[in-house]
């Protein structure tokens, strides 16, 4: 997972479609925010067709991560300052 690997992600959903990843976050994460395609978390761009969601769970972010050969994963990583940045976005 390239630079995401360094964040030691917990993989919640593997090799799904971006739509399945979207639905998973919407149904299973209480706090989620809509972001635009290309939105950056740490050094990773969110890839997909709107609407795209990034979830917040405690100190962690949950988001879809798309690999060209292996589909979309839902991953959970430490959120750090990105949580505040996400919450501060215009609705």
């Amino acid at each position: 997972m390239g630079c995401l690997e360094a964040l030691k992600p917990q993989v919640i959903l593997s090799q799904s479609s971006f739509k399945e990843a979207r639905e998973y976050i919407k149904k299973n994460v209480r706090e989620y925010h809509e972001v635009e395609p290309g939105y950056k978390i740490h050094d990773v761009h969110i890839i997909g067709v709107p609407p795209l969601y990034v979830g917040v769970e405690g100190e962690h972010l949950i988001f879809p991560y798309t690999k060209p050969c292996h589909g979309t994963f839902v991953v959970k990583v430490a959120g750090g300052e990105d949580i505040a940045r996400l919450r501060a976005r215009k609705k």
Binding site: P37, G48, T66, C69
Partner: peptide, 29 residues
């Protein structure tokens, strides 16, 4: 996304769901 560069045309080769996701992203950004 960083507005450093853009293109007049973009051709996206797609044979799986990830390809659709990348095309949708480019269409947006």
């Amino acid at each position: 996304t960083g507005k450093q560069r853009d293109f007049d045309l973009c051709f996206v080769f797609i044979h799986n769901d990830s390809g659709v996701a990348y095309a949708g992203t480019v269409a947006y950004i």
